[in-house]
Design a protein around this nucleic acid. Structure first.
Lengths: 170, 170
DNA sequence: TATTGTTATACTCTATAACTATA
DNA sequence: TATAGTTATAGAGTATAACAATA
């Protein structure tokens, strides 16, 4: 296998560094924006592949999780909790309905209450088990302690963004 | 302004929780995949907006940073360092050439060495200053110490992914 | 035979605007 | 007037396949 991966190097900000070896990401190594976006791609190619075995996408997996945990909520509430717009959540709801993973019960004549079906609970359970397996692969590089450190920091950012009106929400 | 944001809650995994208040993200609160993807969207809407004032996109900003730091490298090396595919880097290179932010010098008759132009250095400098300003908004919720904690953890994941052949690279 | 840059193409995700109907 | 769901559409970003020129 000749992947010929050009190594990268993380270093502190400073002066240019022309060389012949691995490339240097420079200030990007300290940029939350860059690191998050890069890891996002990294994770999602792998994570999506695992979920695809269950007919799931990252968003359907997340949606089923939230619906199970918060039965009877409105479509727009679930979308909002997930941080996606109502308008972009419609197709996902349609998909989950079509696959019989959720039910919709009318609240009034313009809104629905979402519930997980037995089938939905089943895929979710199977996929969640798989998710743990996938995350365990990452645990090879991140100890449980560091993982909870990381998730705590990430949650803090999300929580701050929900209350700070100067930070764009989506 | 009536944004009518439905609050969310982060809690430990466990039993369902039907209520009438804020929604619960359940196990998603401990999922690196979910948290990273959500923050990715959050950051990028804001970050992209700030960069757009300079005619930059996140990828062009990152590319200029790497080219400045590693002058004379091949297009494919820069793409690889950034974790994007050669094929998807072409348009970005074209854009940077057209805006006179970089120069291309032939290495042999099939590859080019990339260098930052004066104009490229100028936008990069201006945008980097703006970047610091944007990150300072985040520092409202994340102390400098926590920020470097976070970037260190994120770097660790990226580094592990570059050496672990079982983890998809892009 | 492998590398470098390229084109074409399709698919996903997201953002915006506008519409219907209901409250 | 505001809310809930929907449709249509456009723009990024990314993935795959295939190709030409060169090493």
């Amino acid at each position: 296998m000749s992947l010929v991966k050009t190594d990268i190097v993380h270093s502190a900000p400073g002066i240019p560094k022309p060389r012949g070896g691995p490339l240097d990401l420079g200030d990007l190594s300290n940029s939350i924006e860059y690191l998050v976006s890069r890891i996002h791609r990294l994770i999602f190619t792998g994570f999506s592949t695992h979920l695809a075995a269950f007919g799931l996408r990252p968003l359907t997996f997340a949606a089923l999780t939230v619906i199970e945990r918060n039965p009877g909520r409105k479509q727009s509430e679930v979308a909002d909790a997930l941080g996606v717009q109502r308008t972009n959540f419609v197709a996902t709801v349609d998909e989950m309905l079509q696959k019989l993973w959720i039910d919709r019960a009318p609240i009034d004549r313009r809104s629905y209450a979402l519930h997980l079906s037995e089938g939905g609970a089943a895929v979710l359970k199977a996929a969640a088990a798989e998710r743990v397996k996938v995350e365990n692969e990452w645990d090879l590089s991140l100890s449980p302690a560091k993982k909870s450190e990381l998730t705590a920091l990430l949650r803090q950012i999300i929580e701050a963004s929900s209350s700070d009106p100067t930070i764009p929400r989506r």
